[in-house]
Every structure is written in structure tokens, then in C-alpha cells.
Design a protein around this nucleic acid. Structure first.
Lengths: 261, 261
DNA sequence: CCGTTTGGTTCCATTATGTGAAACTTTGTC
DNA sequence: GACAAAGTTTCACATAATGGAACCAAACGG
């Protein structure tokens, strides 16, 4: 088990435990955690104590179960507020959503996975926390491929190593080779498509958000269904989407020199 | 400088650093952090490396600044989703907001401070992430006092030790003694008032959310302004608010036995 | 009732880990 | 080309994490 990475040091282990609690949606007992982790009893116990004492976990004394603590929520608030893109991008997402009438995703890269940090739903209003924070695969989503395509070679290697290449649909690019070829095409074209590679019937057109120096900040996608539109139609929005992406990038970059003299 | 608690062990220090980054809204440089923390250079450096490597922080290579990492956002998503009350309480908050027409706060206790986990604004629609996650003082807010009043003596002591008793307005209860007397009254009455103790012109009526065993899960408040209404008028909503609080508590408690046989 | 199991907590000798002063390497400045 | 500021690495040392085993408490079962 323990598909987790090389846990460096004590804090690595502690965070590993945190993830373990986070993964299962529900409060867990000590023994539940014990069987999953390959840490010995006493070690795990101490880690849990520390995390609890630090407010990262909460121990429900009635049930004897551990859940993620409130300190995380507080940190998250700060994380979201300062995680470069999300707060800056807000008005631009609104604009893009309004102009296209489609679902918009704003994503960033998280250790080879795609992390959705904001979203505009075609139908209903926002509902932030409930949807942001989700993760998805990189190799078979529009935003994922858009980011991979412009990633620094080193980081790309790392990211590729973390892809499962599970065949979600019969369109899924299920080998590194196929994906590399696709990334090449994406770079040439300037934007990425999702041709129902992740979910049957879901298509999208995605563009990267890049700094002037070419670093990948995130990606932006316009998503729809085959029932409602076609890839070709979505591609017509690519220009607008790129424009918005550029404006987000510009603002993100200019936004870096607050007080220091 | 180091107003932080007793940092137990290495993870304590690491989390301390995380908080430090979180506190300042903006990306920080190594040297910025160095002057604030009283950790020696090398130690801080290693902590930052570990946290960065773990995805809890991000090092912007262009600027050499640290910001909170995406892993945190992911964890937070889980935290919010499972932090007992917030997701359960949603529909109830909607109901309360609709029936009262006032601003509603849902809060939990976080190391002696009040953490707002959800909110309904009287005027505009939701806007979750931007508002939840905020913290405030316990001794001079309605939700804070409501929770303190029913806290277990041990925890109450801890919480009291963390209050600043800063005099925000001339109504603020600025000593532990005054506060203790007030808590007594609150227990007797069953709900807490905020008599412009935190902010001039802002009043509220708050009730605790308690388990059957009497443990404090959180608090719920109906907030308004002196311009719009009076405490007496707000108190008329206390019955309804208590009712809603009870229903939230009931659902939170029944929600605890997922799979285990 | 008393033996047994299960779930949780504490001990403590061992050693791995983290520590931090100082030295070193960049990178930027005049 | 010397100087400084910012960031990174080293290494002898001590603290802090480790985990096997013992312990405790409550639930079970006969």
C-alpha cells in the first residue's frame, strides 16, 4: 500500500496522515488509520496527537474519531485568497462565462494532477467551496494537457511519471507516447481539446495561462457536451479564451510587488 | 513576534511557518520570513524546503517568493466538506436566512478564536470562499460568547487565556470577570447577544449548537444593525434560531455511522 | 463473574532527525 | 573588481522521533 511519495522527515509523515484522513470523506477511528498506514501503532498515535494538538485534526471525544480540523479551513481561506490566480481571475471568469454561456474551469497543477481552483457553471450560480478543490487527472483533461504542453521539461517528466494512463473512454490517450505527440500538436495549435477523453459526451477547449517568461500558472477551459455543441464551435471561443488568459496572466504578474521598497 | 503557542516538535514548527506565510496575504521572500520567525536561518530554510517539497508551499522561481501551496487547497476542500457542520447546515442556513431576512453566521471554535465557516448575507448571494474562513475574537462576538458559555471548563480556561480583551467599543466586555458573569447570564437565558461589543452599530443574537451530550459543535447567529432593528426584535427570532440549531445538531449527530459494521 | 479480546495509551532504550553557527556561493551594486 | 545582500550547503552535536512491548480500560462471552 502506501502509494504516497517519499515522505521526507517527520512533517512528511504527519502530512501523509493528514491526507489519509482527508481521503476518506468521513471521520476515522484510530484503528481505521492504523490498518491503512504502515506506521507502527505508537508512531501513528503520536502523529495524530500532534496534529490534533495543532488544530489540523479534531478528535471527536464522543466517537473517538478524527476529522480534519478547522485550522485547515482557515489556512485554506488564505491559500485560496493568495493562490495567485483564483481571486485575480474571478472577474475574468465571470466575463468568459457570460460571453460563452458555457461552463468555465480554472485549474492549476498539483503534483502531476489537475486541481480545479474555480469554476463557473453554465446553469446555476457559483457555489465555490463545494466545487473548487477537486482534483482530476492531467493526461486526459483539457486543462491538464494545456498545462503539460507548456511545462518545463523537468517538471513535465515528473508529471508524466505520475499519470496513470487509465483508459477512461475509448478516446483516452493511454500511453506516454500518444500524449507526447498530442502535446506537440497542442503547442503548435496554441490550445488543447478534450475529445471525450475523460468522460463520454464531455468536450472542452483549454488554453494555458503563462507568465511572460513562459512559466505555467494554470489553465482555463470552456467545457460543454456533445449534445449541445461541437469541438469546432468550441474552438471559435479559443481566441477569446486566450485573450482572457493573457489578461489574467498580466494581472497576476503585475500583482507581485506590494510593499517592499 | 512569536505570539504563537508552544510549538510541539518539528511538525509544530513547520505548521508555524505555514501560518506565517498564510498570515501575510502576499507571497514572501526567504529573508522576509527570516526576520519574523525566530528560527535560525538554516532551520527555517530546511522547513521551507520540506513544506515546498510537500506541496504545502509553492516557491515562485521567478520571484523567489513563497506562497501557500495547492495541496493546502485540496486538503481544505476536504476539511470544509467534512468539518461536521458546514455542509450539513447549508439548507438550514438558507431557511433561517429566508425566514429572518437577516445576515446569518455559522461559526466554530478554533483555538480560542471564532472561525466563520459559512454565512448568508442579507443583501447579496453567497460567495463562499471569500467570506468563510475568516476568524474573529470570541469574547466580544455573539457566536463566540454562545460557544464559550457552553464550553467544557477545561477548554473554557484555555480559550479565556487566549482572549485579548481589547476594547473594540465602549460596550466591549474587557475583563475575564465581566465575561464570566455574562456567560452565566447567557447560559441562563439560552442565547447570547452582541450589544455592539465588537463593532459599533452591529448587533446580533446567537445560539450554540450542542450535541445531546452537551458538547459544543458551533454557533449560529442572526446579525443586523442598530439602524435597521433592535436587540428585542432580534430576540424574537431566538426561538426559531434555537430550533434550527437543534435540527443541525441532530443531523450532525446522526451522520456519524457510515460504513463500519 | 472472571477470562479474553479489542481498541487505545504510555514507557523507554535506541537511533535517526533535526539543529544552527559558520562557511560558502550566487547575484546584484557601485 | 571589490562589497554587500540573499540564498544555500556543511557538519559536529543534541534533541526529538521511533517502535517494540507493556499497560490499561472497556466491551464481550461463556
Amino acid at each position: 500500500m502506501g502509494a504516497e511519495g517519499h515522505a521526507d522527515g517527520t512533517v512528511g509523515k504527519a502530512l501523509d496522515v493528514l491526507d489519509m484522513v482527508a481521503r476518506h470523506g468521513r471521520p476515522l477511528r484510530f484503528s481505521d488509520l492504523l490498518v491503512q498506514s504502515d506506521y507502527p501503532k505508537a508512531t501513528l498515535y503520536r502523529l495524530l496527537q500532534t496534529l490534533t494538538h495543532q488544530g489540523m485534526l479534531t478528535l471527536d471525544p464522543d466517537q473517538g474519531t478524527y476529522a480534519l480540523g478547522v485550522r485547515l479551513v482557515r489556512l485554506a481561506h488564505a491559500a485560496w485568497a493568495q493562490s495567485s490566480l483564483a481571486p485575480i481571475a474571478r472577474p475574468y471568469l465571470d466575463e468568459l462565462a457570460e460571453k460563452t454561456g458555457e461552463t468555465i474551469h480554472l485549474a492549476q497543477m498539483d503534483l502531476g494532477q489537475v486541481l480545479y481552483v474555480d469554476k463557473r457553471n453554465a446553469a446555476r450560480p457559483v457555489e465555490m467551496f463545494a466545487q473548487a478543490g477537486k482534483v482530476g487527472p492531467a493526461y486526459c483533461t483539457g486543462v491538464g494537457k494545456a498545462m503539460l504542453a507548456w511545462l518545463h521539461p523537468d517538471q513535465l517528466d515528473q508529471a508524466l511519471a505520475r499519470q496513470s494512463f487509465h483508459r477512461h473512454t475509448d478516446q483516452t490517450l493511454d500511453t506516454p507516447e500518444k500524449l507526447m505527440a498530442e502535446l506537440q500538436a497542442i503547442r503548435a495549435r496554441g490550445h488543447a481539446f478534450d475529445r471525450e477523453e475523460h468522460e463520454k459526451g464531455i468536450i472542452c477547449c483549454a488554453v494555458p495561462i503563462l507568465t511572460r517568461s513562459g512559466r505555467v500558472l494554470g489553465a482555463l477551459s470552456v467545457t460543454s457536451t456533445t449534445a449541445r455543441t461541437t469541438l469546432a464551435a468550441l474552438e471559435e471561443q479559443a481566441g477569446l479564451t486566450k485573450d482572457i488568459a493573457a489578461r489574467i496572466a498580466a494581472e497576476a504578474e503585475s500583482w507581485r510587488f506590494p510593499e517592499q521598497n
